[in-house]
């Protein structure tokens, strides 16, 4: 059964189409990763899912029903920007959450704050970005929610705490809940997410099981004796998503049938033909416009 269906979602801000016709199914008992360059529309999708933004068209349904107040109780959200009150201590925030949500587990929240080393006597303004993220994550995971929507839930965290957040997400999926998260750190998405969606400029450009995307998408590379070579229609094959030629080298991005295409490439006179695996970062970079994607990813990966 799929918990959340997003159908043909459109959201405009003025003349900008932040989300431009996105359709997604987010299953239960799973971690779902949303990837995209800055400004791709990830946060807007999350806001529409939570009714914090009104879509211009399209629908979002939870188990076939639109979002309602009782459903809202079962969803926990960690926004990308801090929503903690600067003047309140973390202990006061904990108390506020306890009063706001019937299913909030104060004991669990306390444990999580301790694991993340968040000093609950401190006011929010005295905490670093990472500690604020950690506090929001701790409160979200103490909610006993069935759906967790996490926008950059590891922002500013050190590697140990980042891994801890991934473990918490995986634990929720193992308990049957749905986790939807976005991250610029592709390695985290690759590790924790079963299924991913890549959005770029408001549109869905790729969606699927991470393992299936890796199994199917390959680079077939061939090197020719000289620059005058013909591909005999290989580039027109429906399974060849992209062809890059530089001098004597041709690189084909294939979406299936890599071995067969490699054989055909050998048949055209290529001397060295290789089939190369792609990791999620490669898949991401091929899926989005390279200029935006490259700067985005490299800048964020340096954080690790």
């Amino acid at each position: 059964m799929s918990t959340i269906t997003i159908s043909n979602l459109h959201k405009r801000y003025g003349s900008v189409a932040a989300v431009d016709g996105v359709t997604l199914e987010i299953p239960t008992s799973s971690v779902f990763g949303i990837l995209g360059p800055n400004g791709a529309g990830k946060t807007t999708i999350f806001k529409c899912m939570l009714n914090l933004a009104q879509p211009n068209a399209g629908a979002i349904r939870y188990e076939g029903r639109p979002l309602s107040a009782p459903l809202f109780e079962r969803i926990a959200y960690v926004p990308e920007r801090s929503v903690l009150y600067d003047w309140m201590t973390i202990a006061e925030h904990l108390e506020m959450n306890r009063r706001a949500y019937a299913t909030f587990d104060s004991g669990r929240a306390g444990e999580l704050l301790e694991q993340f080393n968040v000093d609950r006597r401190k006011r929010a303004r005295a905490l670093s970005k990472g500690m604020r993220t950690a506090a929001m994550v701790a409160f979200a995971f103490a909610r006993n929610a069935e759906v967790l929507i996490l926008d950059e839930p590891t922002g500013g965290l050190d590697p140990v705490n980042q891994r801890h957040v991934l473990s918490l997400m995986i634990n929720e999926a193992a308990r049957g809940n749905s986790v939807i998260f976005s991250s610029h750190q592709i390695g985290q998405v690759e590790r924790a997410a079963e299924r991913i969606a890549i959005v770029d400029r408001g549109r869905l450009v790729l969606e699927g099981l991470v393992d299936d995307l890796k199994a199917d998408r390959k680079i077939v590379e061939g090197i020719f004796p000289d620059t005058r070579f013909r591909l005999d229609g290989i580039a027109d094959d429906a399974r060849v998503a992209r062809t890059d030629r530089t001098e004597r080298i041709v690189r084909l991005l294939v979406t299936a049938g890599a071995d067969e295409i490699a054989q055909r490439l050998s048949g055209t006179g290529a001397t060295a033909v290789r089939v190369l695996d792609l990791n999620l970062e490669d898949i991401f970079l091929y899926a989005v416009s390279p200029a935006t994607a490259t700067t985005d990813v490299i800048a964020e990966e340096r954080v690790l």
Binding site: S167, A173, A174, R191
Partner: peptide, 15 residues
């Protein structure tokens, strides 16, 4: 168990 291994490896339980 699936759950234990997914937590040990920090990978998705469905995987």
């Amino acid at each position: 168990t699936v759950k234990q291994l997914s937590i040990d490896l920090t990978v998705n339980p469905n995987t």
